[in-house]
Design a protein around this nucleic acid. Sequence first.
DNA 1: ATGGTCGTTGGACGA
Length: 257
Amino acid sequence: MKIASWNVNSLNVRLPQVLEWLQSAQPDLLGLQETKLPDEKFPRAEIEAAGYQVIFSGQKTYNGVAVLSRLQPEADDSVNDLPGLVDDQRRVLGATYGGVRFLNLYVPNGQQVGSDKYAYKLGWLGKLREYLKHQLGQYDKLVAVGDFNIAPEDRDVHDPELWRGAVLCSDAERSAFRELLELGLVDTFRLFDQNEAAFSWWDYRQAAFRRNMGLRIDHILANDTMAAACTSSAVDKEPRRWERPSDHAPAVAEFKL
DNA sequence: ATGGTCGTTGGACGA
């Protein structure tokens, strides 16, 4: 089972790239973030024509998540909110595919340390932790993917001193991420040897991609059973080189079930 | 040099 996560920064703009990547990468499950589309404008027909099932939870202009899948989701256990968090922001989509619980997450960016949005991010991560704890008790096989908007360690940052303490890298955010792992999740990327300076997001400004000035903020987390079945985990930088790219590249992991 | 680019939107704001 090949599982991927990609922040597309507008599916309206990025649909051709997504369809191209589906054809070349052939994932079984793909979580998209920042679709930025209300549900009535979601390009369901185009995705189904490419051979994928799709579920989505969107809103106008901001946020929005979708899951593309080879398999039909199992009935009756899909979710599109964190329990205990009343929120119009569409950032969560969970469903079960072939016995694998799949959670697709768009963690708030946080904007700036100390801002209202930063407080919202930390609160959101607290609710996520509670929910993941519950879900890990409910499912034998669980994978949580998404744009976590957190670079977990200095080696996930092109210039750790420049980013020291800044949003995406602050101690509180990194602690919140570690607390997710301590529930019994593994950052699958770190199960394997990786090149140094391996990132998943590069700012559009300053020719950051060409200079590899990036962060690794998109993650594929797996519970023990799925981590034991994981045979690879990496970032596919290729779509970041294409015309009119997202600022994120897909994270991709394979599982031998 | 305290900006720089995108996307959405039709002036800023979010990332």
